[in-house]
Design a protein around this nucleic acid. Structure first.
Lengths: 200, 200
DNA sequence: CACTCTCTGGATAGATCGATCCAATCACGA
DNA sequence: TCGTGATTGGATCGATCTATCCAGAGAGTG
């Protein structure tokens, strides 16, 4: 089937780009893993590698967001949800031998200063994540501006822990990041209850 | 002079690897920026690109650590120091048009699952940063285990904000990360003053 | 001056890169 | 059944990649 080949290409690209980066992954390798041919790739993606990469970034970014939202929804409260996200990330990290972390971070850093269309694609994914996270905190009663700060903080902690964790092959950074995330989120929720200034 | 060429190679490699990644940077480009020849590179680094990359990772990792420690030393207290680090990072990000952030993060993600010697080099840099940060918090009276958690958290926030900031071309993630870092550090210092359990 | 060791200039090999081409095949509606 | 557009098989092109080779320049020592 036609759509099938296209999906296999995106899936293979997603796997490889996330672990080896964009420049570090050859088209032949993608074709080999997807059991496809040059003509198929350039039929579905006339723009070649870059056009495939845009699709990969959007698809894997959306997929990861849905995964996180599912975990979040299963938690009884916001703090538990945040903790569950970090625990899930740590579990995946260990289960994949520290290969699978953020699906787009490696490419994002690679293209940030070298490929504007791809940079925009990664920015749109991060923006979508930020908005989704912001909405969650707003739903818990936190103000809009503070909710956005919380969302950016949680995502930054997650991304940073991915970098440290993959490099050092350890989930310790993820555990520390989880504690910090819980601390700042809980503090923001506490301030909602007592809307005066900091209790300091 | 001999050493001069070697230094120029490391410097050029540092600039390019940090912005374009390892696989995204060709040896010819490094030679061009360093005004050097193939023979010079393979004379100083018989192991080729990878051996140069190990030197680049170590040198730029140490250089960045020294930069951060200088900023930290200039601050009157720990909280001010932490904030100054994030403000400095944001300033560099803007000044370099979102090109210069962490000198090794891009390469770290690239090689984490593909090149064990380089992965080890990046891990050693992150370990050195972690130990240096831990020592700072210990000096402020925070317990050893909590100090290490703080150090990992601050580094993760910094790295994550680099990823988000470069991708979205904004210093907003860095500002949010700074607030979060200050919050968790201040909280840890407060607990030193009142060594009972959490005031919750 | 002669010798030696370090370092560089420049050509080139061999492999791999992304991309293109055209004919063949497939699914599917008229 | 025929035709039409979507899709694929497979060879191939030019460019670029990393790495190697060897001759020669340069500095320092006897």
């Amino acid at each position: 089937m036609a759509t099938d080949t296209r999906e296999r290409l995106v899936e293979a690209g997603s796997r490889l780009f996330q672990r080896q980066g964009l420049a570090g992954t050859g088209i032949k390798q993608i074709l080999s893993e997807a059991n496809a041919q040059f003509s198929s790739l350039y039929h579905h993606f006339p723009g070649g590698k870059d056009e495939l990469a845009v699709d990969v970034i959007r698809a894997s970014g959306l997929h990861y967001q849905q995964l996180v939202e599912t975990v979040w929804d299963a938690a009884p409260d916001v703090v538990t949800g945040v903790r569950a996200i970090f625990e899930g990330a740590a579990a995946v990290l260990e289960a994949t031998d520290y290969a699978d972390a953020c699906p787009i971070a490696t490419v994002a850093l690679e293209v940030a200063s070298t490929n504007e269309p791809l940079r925009v694609a990664t920015a749109e994914v991060f923006d979508a994540w930020t908005h989704a996270g912001t909405a969650r905190f707003v739903d818990s009663g936190v103000g809009a501006a503070e909710s956005r700060r919380l969302a950016l903080t949680v995502i930054a902690l997650l991304e940073g822990a991915f970098v440290l964790g993959r490099a050092t092959r350890s989930v310790e950074p993820m555990a520390s990041a989880a504690e910090a995330a819980v601390t700042v989120v809980r503090r923001a929720l506490d301030l909602v209850g007592s809307p005066a200034g900091s209790p300091q």
